[in-house]
């Protein structure tokens, strides 16, 4: 290609790009709130101390347990509407922040609310999000915010990546023995820990599995966003669906720390998240 042609092409591209900037921008924006409500079946999730033998929950198979930690990463949130409305939450990562990544922790009430800002006015009927930290996030390298490994991020040193979901507690049938790690940390008897991680598939190696999942949840109705209208979607995350879904037997499944072992749980994530209801306005919802 001659240089003149390249220049002409470049000029064309620049023109097109500048044309795009001239397109009319939607003049109205609002906010949309996602509220993550973690539950165990019909019950509210109440955290217990690790090792506590007060088992306040039971699986369908009769496995008695409690929970001491529950949480997960959510990212790449997208809202869509019936008329082509589309909002994609900005993902912007650096050593100082991980914008667009959220760590929903049962123990931190403020983390249950995800406020989406600058949502174009319009109707919305479904939400899509990713559970876990996908390859494109891991391979950015060291990041700040909720992915900072020194500030509570669930980073896996070995098989490096992030734990997408953590379920920890104590179960009557857990075979976990007491372990004193010698450095001031201990693992209490009968506890269990399910860490769902793993972000890549490797050909011919079933032990490397990608346990990151993307879910789309229908509202079953539409809600409107405008300068005055700030809707709220109440997402219920049901731990029991995960545990029942894998028919958990705590006598054999009490220490899950590898991608392959976490896969059955990842495969249940589709069932564990539902939009329970939506509010047209978040004012007065009481969360």
């Amino acid at each position: 290609m001659k240089i003149s042609k390249i220049l002409a092409l470049l000029a064309l591209i620049v023109t097109i790009m500048s044309c795009e900037n001239d397109e009319p921008q939607p003049e109205e924006f609002g906010t949309f709130q996602l509220y993550f409500d973690n539950k165990v079946g019909a019950s509210e999730l109440t955290l217990s101390e690790p090792g506590s033998t007060n088992y306040n929950y039971e699986t369908t198979n009769g496995e008695k347990f409690n929970l001491s930690r529950f949480g997960y990463y959510v990212s790449k949130i997208k809202l869509e509407g019936p008329n082509g409305e589309l909002y994609e939450d900005e993902v912007s990562v650096s050593a100082s922040e991980s914008k667009g990544y959220y760590q929903i922790l049962e123990s931190v009430a403020s983390s249950h609310n995800v406020m989406l800002e600058n949502v174009p006015a319009g109707s919305y009927s479904k939400v899509t999000f990713t559970i876990g930290v996908a390859e494109d996030g891991v391979q950015e390298g060291a990041l700040g915010g909720v992915l900072d490994p020194a500030k509570g991020a669930w980073f896996w040193n070995w098989n490096a990546g992030y734990i997408g979901m953590a379920i920890e507690g104590t179960a009557e049938n857990s075979a976990q023995q007491y372990v004193d790690w010698g450095n001031g940390t201990e693992t209490k008897e009968k506890t269990f820990a399910v860490h769902v991680g793993g972000w890549k598939d490797v050909t011919d190696n079933e032990n490397f599995v990608n346990n990151v999942r993307t879910r789309t949840l229908d509202f079953g109705t539409t809600v409107s966003v405008s300068e005055e209208l700030s809707p709220n979607a109440h997402v219920v995350t049901d731990v029991l669906k995960l545990l029942d879904g894998v028919n958990i037997d705590f006598s054999s499944t009490y220490s899950v720390h590898a991608p392959k072992a976490g896969k059955p749980f990842a495969d249940q994530l589709a069932n564990a998240f539902v939009v329970h209801h939506v509010h047209q306005s978040s004012n007065g919802h009481g969360h």
């Binding site: 391979q139 950015e140 390298g141 060291a142 490994p149 070995w158 490096a160 990546g161 450095n183 890549k200």
Partner: peptide, 23 residues
């Protein structure tokens, strides 16, 4: 074990037979 250069030092820092320190 590690797929990105940034994460390499963490293993040396946190290994109990190397630096035995937390990040």
């Amino acid at each position: 074990a590690v797929t990105h250069l940034d994460f390499v030092p963490i293993n040396a820092i946190e290994s109990d037979v190397e630096m035995d320190e937390s990040l």
